[in-house]
């Protein structure tokens, strides 16, 4: 059977949710068929449920609050923000509203909304349509942030998100949409053993030697997951260095258990993200691991991230800015050299 493309998996999940629950709405720009949203994740929904797909003016500063208002009154809106970069327009609603209502109103309310938005570059869209801004959400309490990757169960992640009673930021990835949603087969993927974490938004931990001794734990999410996995495979094939890859899907609250478990085996941590380096997701992972598992570490952690700067439009310049497989390999080898 042909593997479903990621966009089809996400779209299928939304169709299932719309069928099953009358309280689910999709709100955002350019959602109506035949267009079906800029990246087509909402395709077909407006034809089947015209009353529950609300196409909007270009008003991101307000749309987050509109979704919050619906959620406060018992609905489960899914807000599509066309590009993750536009989160910046809605940040007041995120910081001063969505993340506050439940706790600020003394647990009298919940805000079960989902904000779906694609992040990531490698499409040549330039500085304001290519960023990975998860780091800004990392500092926001009381929200869930899920980073989907092409190796996760995308259908399951979307169902978990819509049925979550907390506000969920569901980060998709632009490169991922058109690719197959590859899933482990019999516990293996690309020759690597794969173990899925417990609960909603499960992590995936990959090992090339059945979780025997490993040289490093590579923590990645979203668009960096395939790069991290490719780096791990290349290190095995070319250098006989075995690493584990922890592919997180829940960044908030940070899903630390699979990271700590893997670091206990490897003694070394490399984080990989497409966002820029300073104060990134990797910084938080490293700080937590240092606090909780210092004794397990045999080398300083290392972060792989984008250069602190813009993401240029020209493919050659963009490639110089964003980290890829080579940078992950380089970081692991640097850890090998530093290892005590």
């Amino acid at each position: 059977m042909r593997e479903r493309r990621c966009v089809e998996a996400l779209n299928g999940a939304l169709h299932e949710l719309f069928e099953r629950r009358s309280d689910v709405y999709l709100i955002g720009e350019d959602l109506l068929d035949p267009y079906g949203g800029a990246f087509k994740v909402g395709k077909g929904l407006s034809s089947r449920w015209p009353e529950r797909v609300i196409t909007t003016p270009i008003s991101e500063a307000s749309l987050f609050g509109v979704a919050a208002g619906m959620a406060l009154r018992g609905y489960r809106p899914v807000l599509e923000i066309m590009f993750g970069d536009f989160l910046a327009l809605g940040f007041d609603q995120v910081v001063n509203g969505i993340s506050k209502y439940r706790e600020m109103y003394n647990e009298q309310v919940s805000v079960p909304l989902v904000v779906r938005t694609p992040m990531g570059g490698r499409r040549g869209y330039g500085p304001t349509h290519s960023q990975s801004l998860e780091k800004f959400l990392m500092g926001v309490p009381n929200v869930t942030m899920v980073a989907a990757s092409e190796l996760h169960d995308l259908h399951g992640l979307m169902v978990d998100a819509v049925e979550d009673d907390e506000p969920v930021f569901f980060i998709e990835n632009k490169v991922m949409y058109g690719r197959p949603n590859r899933r482990p087969d019999g516990g293996y993927l690309d020759g690597m053993r794969c173990v899925e974490g417990p609960g909603p938004y499960p992590s995936l931990t990959f090992s090339g030697n059945d979780f025997e001794e490993s040289a490093a734990t590579i923590v990645a999410y979203g668009g960096m997951v395939p790069h991290a996995l490719e780096a791990a495979v290349e290190l095995i094939v070319q250098q006989e260095i075995f690493c584990e890859v922890v592919a997180l899907s829940r960044l908030l609250p940070l899903d630390l258990d699979p990271v700590l478990e893997s670091v206990a085996r490897s003694g070394s941590l490399v984080t990989a993200e497409e966002g820029s380096l300073t104060a990134g997701v990797g910084a938080e992972v490293v700080a937590r691991v240092n606090e909780l598992a210092w004794d397990d570490l045999r080398a300083p952690a290392r972060r792989v991230a984008a250069r602190d700067g813009i993401i240029p439009a020209a493919p050659g310049l963009e490639a110089q800015t964003l980290p890829g497989t080579a940078e992950v390999i380089e970081a692991v080898l640097a850890r090998q050299a530093a290892r005590t």
């Binding site: 749309l63 609050g65 208002g69 001063n96 509203g97």
Partner: peptide, 14 residues
């Protein structure tokens, strides 16, 4: 200005 969008969402829900 935060409350206007919330009111629109509430009115939409209602």
């Amino acid at each position: 200005g935060s409350i206007l969008p919330l009111a629109v969402g509430i009115a939409l829900a209602e």
